[in-house]
Simulated scan of single mutants.
Amino acid sequence: MTFLTWLYVPGDRPEVVAKALACGADVVIVDLEDAVAPHRKEYARAATAELLAEPPPVPVHVRMNAPRTPLADADLAALAPLPGLSALRLPKVTSAAEVVAVAERSAPVHLYALLETALGVERAHAIATSHPALRGIALGEADLRADLGVRADAGLDWPRSRVVVASRAASLPPPVQSVHPDTRDLDGLARSCVHGRDLGFLGRAALHPRQLPVIEEAYLPTAREIDRAEEVVRAAAVEPGAQALADGRFVDTAVVAAAHRTLSLARRGR
């Protein structure tokens, strides 16, 4: 199944985590890092370990504390062996070695690396190919924006394209778009999702359940996109090889492959 919605919830609020598991998100991300104050870290870890003692109703990822810190060591010891953990998300990754170090301690848990600094973005491909346990990379745009001193949103388009290209070059799935921080700005969220989809992202992280249907609608193909994809597939079945459709569209192997991806994603929404 293709996941499109990834909902962050703070690990020190188990009552909120319980609600998140029933709100329709494809994946729930329990955050032990930025969303949890230092004096609440141990409680958040213990509450999360209790949750993951049994498999939850939807996949649960945990954003652990930054690798190679005492907090990260405690997170790995407490959570990696648990049957309810689907994946670990590693914040502020700047090198392949950080991923390898976590992978060696958490196997066979899947890992996702978050690139939140200029150095992390520069090393995107090395990180993306660091270990077989790594299943994806993504940006942490709030920290990256601060690191780069970026004021306008367009200033992040190059790093965004960088992770899209690095993911594809490493044969990883398309990256998930970073959160839209204004949870009430649903129109802005929708516009931002369209832009992210144009750049090559697939799906998006969210901070509030109200954002989930907006993200899903933006990333699912429209009726027109489905119709056009079906036309391409039908034409290719009748006449394999390069051709031009009646409306002037050129069809070759790459176009057919893209059409199949569109139809596969459309079936996910049914």
Rank of each mutant, 00 (worst) to 15 (best):
R191E: 15
V176A: 07
V232D: 02
V232C: 01
D247F: 02
V232H: 01
A205D: 10
Q211R: 11
V251L: 01
H195C: 14
D185N: 08
R197A: 04
A218H: 10
T222D: 05
G200K: 09
P240G: 03
P173V: 05
A229S: 13
E225V: 06
G241F: 08
L220W: 10
D198L: 12
A169P: 10
V233H: 10
V233K: 12
P209Q: 09
A218P: 13
A246I: 06
V176L: 11
A206M: 08
D247T: 05
R197E: 01
R228Y: 05
P213S: 15
F201C: 07
R210V: 13
D198M: 09
D185P: 04
A244E: 00
A223G: 01
P175Y: 06
A235Y: 04
V214D: 09
R224W: 06
A190M: 09
L220G: 07
G241K: 03
A229E: 07
G203A: 03
A229C: 11
H208E: 13
I215E: 12
Q243A: 02
V179M: 06
P173I: 05
R228L: 14
A236H: 13
E216T: 14
G241I: 02
I215C: 12
R249Q: 10
G196V: 08
V238K: 12
Q177K: 01
V179G: 09
A242Y: 00
F201V: 03
Q211A: 10
T222C: 06
P173R: 01
S192I: 07
L186I: 11
T222K: 03
L245M: 13
A229V: 12
L245R: 09
R204Q: 15
G188M: 04
D247S: 05
T222Q: 06
E231S: 06
C193W: 12
A237F: 00
Q211P: 14
R224E: 15
R224S: 04
G188R: 02
E230C: 04
A218V: 07
A190Y: 12
L245E: 03
A218N: 13
D227G: 01
G248W: 08
A242F: 02
